[in-house]
Structure formats: structure tokens, C-alpha cells
Design a protein around this nucleic acid. Structure first.
Lengths: 196, 196, 196, 196
DNA sequence: GATGAATGAGCTTTCATTCAT
DNA sequence: GATGAATGAAAGCTCATTCAT
């Protein structure tokens, strides 16, 4: 980070404030205060309040995509890939909790007030899963009757909802890594007891 | 509807308005207009704007729980129960789209501005799944290494996220019932090709 | 005035405040205070600050036009008509000084921030003069080489500028009626000494 | 222009910007941009935004007074002098339209926010007319019953209002010089048909 | 002298909530 | 109970002005 990179300082402050209060209840002055800049300064770097939120989406998901892809690309086996995705998603939620909260919340909220905004970064992220599914089908490791477009959403939804609740409950009865492991197990083998 | 059941009229109007605009952008006067009552009348039935939202949660999820439980209780086999739950959840989203949108959005948003509110109804709904899992484990139909508390969230998240996207995209490439079937398949048998 | 005609109360308050501070420096809260209503109440009767100004133009000039036309229509002689117009314009400035100040100022200012707004009422007012000129020409009382479109503006400008300065200077060295008389004299007979 | 005559550059830029947007809507940064200097530089030459406006009044009217006086002083006949004044005023408006717009608008506006400011330059300009009138009266060319203080304002107002409208309407039905001629004619001989 | 990033006071407008009728 | 006009607090955003470089 450059000395006094205001853009970054504001983004990081906004992530904290949005996570705590939600987009609508967050005040610009809250963000300014947390970023230790004047209210007006925010408008030198962003067009308006929405623009801050969108920038968080674009920039921060961008970073995560890079990290996750780098790890997955080292693998050959789609089954392992799914496990890695699950694990990395959950770790990200744990380690960057505020960001995760903002993305989770506003992902749902945002289409109400930013109807025009197509969240391409998020789509790109979730598409990592559908590519894995497709690859597994080609390698005849995964069932071919599953639609990758459904499976990717199911996988992402399962992870994200589990993560969401994990964040909410103050006393975790399991680690987030255990949860990740369970979800990739369910995805790979189902919940049914298998006959040997 | 009883004569002058304003309470219900307001709830139904609020569901439509919240679905369209989101909680924060929705105005009391929008709801009043849609419900064909005066703004002030709303305050005879609800304490404030949040209270309307909470009432939607409580009352409408309550109805859904009843319906779903009734259907599931007719079954003995936990595998069938999971299928029914998946199917009913998805159909509910399709048929009561406005309500589904409100629940989905505000479920995530709400804990930000209503920290004190514990969404017991929602917890009760999701617990339907953990009870099925537990029952399946007792009947030795489901793996015992899975935590019901994780599995329920995974199942609910998978369904809800798939439904969310299904609502968003205007041209559905599959029916919501196909999606439900796929998700219960994944949950029961996993994505892996099984040796016969 | 109906009991508590807020619209009218706000208009009258705005005339005073705009006259004192000018449109831009006037604050909505100043107007609200003077009208003894809440700030928000103003927005029940007007769309925004500009709308108040435009309403002043439309409604108040409308009243003046009516009054002046009524007086002029009683006359047959265009020379008398010009005298009446001059006298009435000046009296209006004297008796409704705040309104006159607002009209004078914002007439010039307004086209800068309300480019789309065509001030038809004002045009109608000034056109009273061109009609008189034209009538005088038809009756062969006025020179035919004068363009009514120029003469009307010259007449209005002469009156209005004289009135403006009369308002500004605290110690009037002449009555506004004397000034009106002088201006109609100049218009009718010019400044030149006439050979008998 | 002297090397780095920023003062003049800023004045000229401000005239353009004020003419286009009006004083209040004009931003310092607009002026700075047009003058190709930094925002802060303006404050090395002027105390504040108002000060720029006042400087425009002082300096630019000063130049005009000089020019007009030089032309008028070559004449002996007050009747010719009035004609010259009318013509020069109108030409000035045509040729220095931006300046004319600023002077016209802010002349009316300014006393609202700069109550203390006595526009001595403007008074000096208009007094050119009263001196001509007085001279004409002494030479027994002009009626003695006219007050020079009224006549000067009438003359100036007639010219300025005609010019204002001429600027506004995009398709001029007459040249500004024709308008000047008509107004000096009215002033000298009136609008009445004269018996021979 | 020149710059332009940073400041923060200030204002319009919105809208949940109230309360006289 | 029902109304809806009125309230006024609250907040996003602008922009004249400052000052460290």
C-alpha cells in the first residue's frame, strides 16, 4: 500500500462499516471517520455511496478469484478441485469476515437498487465451480445427468449459507474447515450410506 | 378475509413492495397505497416499519412451515422427505415469488439493523432438514459422520441460492422442479459416478 | 385566503425571503420559518426550490396582468394607455416592493439555471405595451417607423430600471408617480424641446 | 498580455463562466480550468469568489467608460451625444456579449449578497447620460421639466432591456444598431406623430 | 509563486412517524 | 378506528477555501 492510498483506505473502511451496519444504514461520515479522511474526500475517489459498494465487489472479488484459481490450477483431479474450492471459500469467509458479510448481504440486496449492475465478478467466481463440474463430467468422474449451472449454484449456496450462519453464531461447534470438508463430502458422495 | 382485515392487507402489500424495492427503499406510503389504507393506519397495526418486516417473517414462514411439515409427516423414508423438502421449497419460491424475494434478501440484511431479533421461525424451518438428517442417521440410511447442523444449512443454502438465481434470470433454462430434483439427487448420492 | 392556506403562506414568505437574500442565498428553512411551517411542509406544496420561484412568477404576474389590463381596457386613447401602464407599473413596484425585487432580479438570473423555462407570463405582461403601440400606429397617433417589439422593451426597461433604483436609494428625491409621469412624457413626446 | 498575467486570464475566464452559468452556479474550478490555472492560484489574485465579480465590474466597466467618453467628448451636440451613447452601449452588448450578460445579471443580483458594495463605476457610466441631459437643458435643446436623474435611468433601462432580449432570442428580427437608433429616436422625439 | 488534494460546513430533500379531526 | 397533512431529524453530496509540497 502506497503512503496514504486514500482509495484503499476508504475501501477498507467501507468494508468494515458496511459489514457492521449494512449498506443503507451506513453513513458516509461513518466511513470517512473510520478511514480518517474528511467526508468530502470520499467523493474525490468515488462518485457516490453505491460506487463504493460496487468497487468493493469488483476489486475484492477480483483478488479472491485470483487466489482461488491459482490454487485450483495446481490440481488435476476435479474431485480435489471441489474440495479446494470449498476449503478456500470457507477460509476466506473466516479470515476476511467483514468482506464476506458485505458480499453476502449486498449480493442479495443489490439487485433491488442497482438493477442495471451485472455482477460479472461474482459470476466469474461461481463459474469456477461449473467449470470443475464440467471437467469432471468429461473425465467421466462425475455424473452426466447433472446440469453444471445448477450444481455450481447449489455448491456455492451450500458453502455460503453455512458460512453465513457460522459467522452469526458466536460459539462455533465446529471449525469452518470441518464444515468445508463436510460440504465437499456431501457434494462428492451424497448423504446416503453407500453399499460396499 | 374478514371485514376490514387491514392487518393482512398491509402484510400482503408490504410483501409486494419490499420485493420490488427492498426494505430500505420501500416507503410506508407505497405500502399504504398498495394496501389502500392511509399511511397512519399502518401504525394502528404495526409499531414501525421494521415491525412489518418481522411480521412477514413470523406469519408467512409460519404458514409455510405448516404446509411443508404436513407433507413431510406423511412420509416415512428420510430420503423421500429430503426430496419433498427440496421440491416444496422450490415450488414455494416459484409460486410465492415476492415473499421468497423478501425472505431471501432481508434474511441476510436483517441481522444488521435488527441485531436483537432472533429469527426463530426461520430456524424452525431449516431445522426440518436437520431432523430429517438425524432420522436418516438413526435409521442407518445416512452417513453418521455428517453433522446435521452443517447438512441442514448446506441443503437450505443450495436450494435457496439456486432459487435466487432462477428468479433473477428471465429465461429459465430448466424448470424449478428439475432444479429441485437435481439438488436432492446431489444431496443423496453426491456428484460422483458410483461403481455398481 | 382560506384558513391556513399553506400554499399562499409559503408563496408570500418566499417573496419576502427571495427579495431579501436572492434566490440562491435563500434557504428553504428561511422560507419555512417565515411561513411558520416545517421545512418538509414546503415540499407538500412545491416540487423544489425552483418550483417556488416559478410559482411566484406565474401566479403573481398573473394577478398584476389582470389588474393592469382591467385599467387599460377602460381607455380608448393609446396615449392615455401608455400613461396608465407607466403609472400602474411604478405603483406596483412601490406597493409590492418585495415582489418587484424578486421579479426584477430573477427575471435576469433565471435563464441561467432554468434554461428551459419560458416566462410566458412576463412576455404577456410586456406585450401589453406592444399592443398599445400597435393600436396607436393604426390610429395614426404614433409614428409608424417604430417597431413595437423594440418600443415595448424600451418602455418596460425604462420603467423597471427607474423603479429599481428608486427602491435602492433610501431617500427618494421624487415620488414614484412623478417618475412614471416623466417616463411616459419622454415616451410620448421625447426629450427635445418642441417648436410650437 | 504580460508574461503570466494570471489576473487578466482569470478575469476573462470568469466572465465567460459567469455569463454561461450565472454567478452562483459557476464553480471556482470551472473558472480555474478555463483560465488554465490551478484552483488555488485564483486565491493568489482574488480574495474570494465575490471579489472576482467585483473586479469584473470595476475593471471592465472602467474600460467601457473610457471608450464611450472618448467618443462623446468629440461631439458638441447633446442630441448626437445621446445617439452615440445608445449606439455604443448596444454595440458593446453585441461585441462583448459575455461581459454584458454578467453585468446585466449581477447588477440586479449583486446588491442582495453584497449589500455594502456601492457600484461606483456603474453609477459613473450611467451618469454620462444625466450629464448629456443637463447639458442639453442648459443649451435649451431639451425640455427643462425633465429630471436628469430619471431620464438617465430611463435611457439606460430602455437600452439595457432591449439589449437583454436581443441577446436571448436566437433569431434577431432587427440589428442591434437599428434598435439603438429607434431608442434614441424615441428619447429625442417621442413616439407621437408630430404636427409639422 | 503555483499547485491541487483535502477539508468540512452547509443545504436541499426525503420520509417515518405523529396527531388533530 | 381511520385519515393524511404536517412535522423535523437526518444524510448524501457540493464546492469555496486552505495549505503542505
Amino acid at each position: 500500500m502506497r503512503i496514504s492510498d486514500k482509495h484503499e483506505k476508504i475501501i477498507q473502511a467501507a468494508i468494515k462499516v458496511f459489514a457492521k451496519k449494512g449498506f443503507f444504514s451506513a453513513r458516509i461520515s461513518d466511513i470517512a471517520q473510520k478511514a480518517k479522511v474528511a467526508d468530502g474526500t470520499i467523493y474525490l475517489y468515488f462518485n457516490n455511496k453505491y460506487d463504493i459498494l460496487i468497487s468493493i465487489f469488483e476489486e475484492e472479488i477480483g483478488k479472491i478469484i485470483k487466489e482461488v484459481k491459482a490454487l485450483i490450477d495446481q490440481e488435476e483431479d476435479p474431485r480435489k478441485m471441489l474440495e479446494i474450492f470449498a476449503m478456500e471459500h470457507m477460509r476466506m469467509v473466516r479470515d476476511r469476515r467483514n468482506l464476506a458479510e458485505v458480499l453476502q448481504m449486498e449480493l442479495r440486496q443489490s439487485n433491488k437498487f442497482m438493477r442495471e449492475y451485472r455482477n460479472t465478478k461474482f459470476i466469474e467466481y461461481v463459474d469456477i465451480v461449473s467449470k470443475i463440474i464440467r471437467k469432471g463430467q468429461e473425465m467421466e468422474l462425475f455424473r452426466k445427468d447433472l446440469m453444471p449451472g445448477v450444481a455450481k449454484r447449489a455448491m456455492f449456496g451450500a458453502l455460503d449459507e453455512t458460512a453465513r450462519l457460522w459467522i452469526l453464531s458466536p460459539d462455533h461447534q465446529y471449525t469452518i474447515e470441518e464444515a468445508a470438508k463436510q460440504i465437499s463430502t456431501i457434494f462428492l458422495s451424497g448423504v446416503e450410506e453407500k453399499p460396499q
